[in-house]
């Protein structure tokens, strides 16, 4: 919870590159990754994106590994279910668990690997975006997409207040922990409830104050933002195109290859 990725994005040297280029790279990776039919292309995308994030974006390597491991719990549970229960090909492995037959079939395992690799590539793409682009940069992009004004305004205000309340929640939680508020299960539940309610009430008061403050500064439902103009450089373009081209070629040639 304390690892808000935005903190790292603010320090990344890639922050000062063109936002649209970064978004294009991420979207390309996501779409190719999700539509690939063999695990090779997604692994390639994952490798490229990780390289860019760590070497060019200077994200700490240890943190990156930790981040990759965190959501894998969900992925592995899901993948195991897929490996065991889908597919109809020949059996690779079968055993009985408490009298209940379990077997891994070839195409089930293939599908499981494919899904795992797709998740991995998707995660690497997302981490590339979140570790190199602070949210503030993305608001300018959001403005250009012509989403309704109210939604953008709402997301900007939410973004601001996440940090205020996160700070508040952490200090309340710290105070509770020091007073043994989480020493056993019953107390933890009570402490959580208290934390939530205090947070809610504080939120409410803050909202009132915010309205007052903004109103007295002539808020009319619009906050003006200026996008910093960041020209594309030739080397960036060449690198991106090389990456796109090699991914597409790899995608084309590994279409029908299966690993298992």
């Amino acid at each position: 919870m304390t690892n808000i990725l935005d903190d790292y994005a603010l320090m990344s040297p890639l922050r000062h590159r063109n936002n649209w280029l970064k978004l294009a790279i991420v979207l390309f990776g996501l779409l190719v990754g999700v539509s690939s039919t063999s695990p090779i292309t997604p692994f390639f995308i994952a490798l490229c994106m990780s390289f860019t994030t760590i070497v060019l974006g200077r994200a700490p390597f240890k943190l990156y590994l930790k981040l990759l491991l965190a959501p894998l719990g969900f992925a592995i549970t899901g993948v195991i279910i897929i490996a065991f229960f889908s597919g109809s090909g020949h059996e690779l492995l079968s055993f009985e668990l408490i009298g209940y037959p379990l077997s891994v079939k070839a195409d089930g395992l293939e599908l499981a690997l494919l899904v795992l690799s797709r998740s991995l590539s998707g995660m690497c793409c997302l981490y590339f975006l979140s570790l190199t682009t602070p949210m503030i940069e993305l608001f300018a992009v959001l403005k250009a997409t012509r989403l309704p004004e109210s939604v953008i305004e709402l997301s900007m205000l939410i973004y601001r207040y996440i940090f205020v309340f996160l700070d508040m929640a952490l200090s309340i939680r710290y105070a509770q922990t020091v007073r043994l508020g989480y020493s056993n299960f019953r107390r933890s539940i009570h402490s959580m409830g208290m934390l939530g309610s205090t947070l809610f009430i504080r939120t409410w008061e803050q909202g009132d104050k915010l309205f007052l403050a903004m109103n007295s500064r002539c808020y009319d439902g619009k906050m003006t933002l200026f996008e910093v103009h960041r020209p594309l450089r030739a080397t960036e373009l060449v690198l991106t195109f090389a990456y796109f081209l090699s991914t597409v070629i790899l995608f084309y040639f590994t279409k029908n290859i299966s690993i298992v």
Partner: peptide, 17 residues
């Protein structure tokens, strides 16, 4: 709008605890 914004932040913080 400010109220909804703080509510959104509240939901985010609550769900990250």
């Amino acid at each position: 709008l400010p109220l909804l914004a703080v509510a959104g932040a509240f939901v985010f913080v609550l769900s990250s605890l």
